[in-house]
Amino acid sequence: MLKTLQPRTSTQIPEPPVSRFLFADTRMAWFWLIVRLYVGYEWLTAGLEKLTGHSYTFDASFGQVVKGGAWVFSGHDGAGLKGFVAGALAQAGGPHPAVQGWYATFLQHVVLPNATLFSYVITFGEICVGLGLLLGVLTGIAAFFGLFMNLNFLLAGAVSINPVIGTLALFLVLAWRIAGYYGVDRYLLPLLGTPWTGSLRKNQAHLPNVATS
């Protein structure tokens, strides 16, 4: 019986129906819309706080000055990030450090000397990720970069809400085909297509016309 099995002939394993329903069926787009708006709101408010130095969360702190002030356009650009890095480096010691040695080395020798540049990259990166998710523009790509920033914050010892929105961002990456269905992606993705299919609109234009009676 084992001789009849030919594993090499099966190069692909079909996607389970549950996975297709959750991550590729437009009937689930409403669910990913809720997830997308929540994660986008968190990223946009975080970016605006670093840009302006004021809170934009819808609670009692709305409009108040945030701790550390603005990260950019403040006359002391990079100061906020330097404080964040200093806190991360303080967690790199001891027998069970919250920040791993290799990442602490990266923070100390790469991020810290270029704090001003990284401050702008992080600030506008958070704003772009937030806007991309809220508007549903290239949702999968926006969620991926959001997840990348979450990972870096976690490696720097900043837990906070990062595990939550990082996990949600991971699922948004998996649901990239429908996560932006109630957004710009509904029209943008068919126009752009994918590297392995090309533009769906162009493909439809080349389909032969079938006469109907």
Score class of each variant (00 low, 15 high):
S199Y: 08
I34R: 00
P97G: 00
F144S: 11
G180C: 03
L151V: 15
L174E: 05
N209D: 13
T123L: 09
I122R: 07
T57A: 12
T11Y: 02
V164G: 05
Q108C: 02
Y41T: 12
V164Q: 08
R27I: 02
Y56C: 02
K3H: 14
T4P: 01
A46Q: 13
A142I: 00
K67F: 05
T105A: 12
I34K: 01
A46F: 09
L89K: 15
I178A: 05
E49D: 10
G47M: 12
F58H: 04
A156K: 11
Y120T: 12
A115N: 11
L37D: 04
F73M: 12
V85Y: 01
Y182Q: 14
I165V: 12
L147K: 03
T116A: 11
A29M: 06
S61M: 12
V110P: 09
Y41P: 07
A169S: 15
F21E: 10
L81R: 10
R186K: 14
Q204S: 06
G166V: 09
N150K: 05
T167L: 14
T57W: 15
V66K: 10
S160I: 00
Y38I: 09
W32D: 05
F84E: 04
A115P: 06
L168S: 11
G69V: 02
Q100Y: 09
T57G: 01
D77Y: 01
Q108Y: 06
S61I: 00
F21P: 08
A79Q: 15
Y187G: 03
G183C: 03
L207F: 12
T194H: 12
L44A: 10
V173S: 11
K82E: 12
T139M: 09
A88S: 15
A90F: 03
P163F: 02
A79G: 06
L112Y: 12
H206P: 01
G78C: 02
Y41G: 06
Y41Q: 14
F73Y: 08
S10I: 14
R36P: 08
L37M: 11
C128G: 15
S74G: 11
I34Q: 08
N203A: 02
A29C: 05
K50N: 13
W30N: 15
V85K: 09
D77Q: 07
G47V: 09
F171Y: 07
L112S: 07
Y38Q: 02
V173Q: 06
V164M: 08
Y182F: 14
Y56V: 04
G69S: 04
A90H: 06
L155I: 01
R36W: 05
R177Y: 12
Y181L: 01
A142M: 08
N162D: 13
G83Q: 11
L188E: 00
Y56G: 05
N203C: 06
Y120E: 01
L51V: 00
P16M: 01
W196T: 06
W102G: 08
T194Y: 10
N162F: 11
G80R: 09
A158F: 10
L33G: 08
Y56H: 15
G68S: 02
N162M: 09
F171Q: 06
M149W: 04
